[in-house]
Amino acid sequence: MIVRLNTILQSNFKGSKEELIPILQKVQEEMGFLPKEAMYNIAKFAGVPESKVYAVATFYAQFRFTPIGRNKIMVCRGTACHVRGAPRILDEMETQLKIKEGETTADMEYTLETVACIGACGLAPCVMVNKKVEAKLTPKKVVELFGGKGGKGGKGGKIEN
């Protein structure tokens, strides 16, 4: 891991404090999350105390410290989505995936998160599946996303890698 990390660091960054957030973003993009060991080495590379790296990483909602599922589902909790029923969409997602917001399924297939707003308010309520936005959702459509009742990730669902 450290070899891979060093390659990411050396080939993209100079090693200054200003780069700390971009470094964390890049490392997370490459590794899927921020392992403690990586953060420790980033601190050395950027020339900041390791407590600072941890302080910054835990401040921003984007960073995660556990591995992420193969599919990332982000339920929008924007105002427009809320007044058009986003809480029930999240409920249904949690029921379908049998996990809570912020968790990953045991088979590492799905990670369920909420996001402040994805800016597709005109088409509320919506969720972002990987990089694609699913619009005007209803609990029923959520069930269809996963290929029918109880068919978490089963065949026929719209969510695929």
Binding site: V56, F63, V115
Partner: peptide, 21 residues
């Protein structure tokens, strides 16, 4: 990196500097 408060001017500046926003 996902922090609403960074819309606030001084927090935004802190964020660009690589600090907690």
């Amino acid at each position: 990196a996902g922090a609403f408060v960074c819309g606030e001017e001084t927090a935004l500046i802190a964020s660009i500097e690589g600090e907690r926003g």
